[in-house]
Amino acid sequence: MLKMTDVSKIYRTDTVETHALREFSLTVDEGEFVSVTGPSGSGKTTFLNIAGLLEEMTSGTYELDGRDISKLNDRERSRVRNEKIGFIFQSFNLIPELNIFDNVDVPLRYRGLNAAERKRRIEESLDMVGLASRLKHQPAQLSGGQQQRVAIARALAGEPRFLLADEPTGNLDTHMADSVLDLLSEINSNGVTIIMVTHELTLADRAKRNIFVRDGQVTDAAPEFLRAANG
């Protein structure tokens, strides 16, 4: 499903060179629920950006669904993001000017689906997250948990092969966080591959496999300081 081999990412300025990922290798099979954990600055978000085709890697190989991603141009990368990947962001990233229906509709329009098909998918996905009655609401009229559910519905509406979740409960209280994680588990049980980036080990434990990142590389086990920080 996802295979990264010796992926590096270097951010360069005139005077500074920052190695965000160093020979990062990871394989995720179809249907897995994988958490990626690490301290701040470890390279989690860089990994997520490269896995989600939001950034280009400096070197290495990345195959998604059997396809070499490094050869794709911007238009093709956009298409892969749109058709194969669903994103769930920490700050929900709903578009404040659009109502719930239009927010879920955004990626579907970019796919070029007809109006009837889009409407069906939007209603189904919002129904799945329990917000079918809030179609005309604005994001600001919903709680944080509800907004994250809308974001999940938006990700699911495109019927992606895998979900990338970036600290999906970072802005939620414990109760809402549990609810969102329950939803992710349910989605995973339906066959969708999930990669969840988080710095909280307790949340990472909800995944079926945990990956630990430190200094831009995959490590075998959670470092002690991370366990200590998480209690």
Partner: peptide, 15 residues
């Protein structure tokens, strides 16, 4: 940020 979100969700540059 909204433009970045749209790009992440699959918007091409022409879009």
């Amino acid at each position: 940020r909204q433009i970045g979100i749209r790009r992440a969700l699959g918007a091409t540059k022409p879009a």
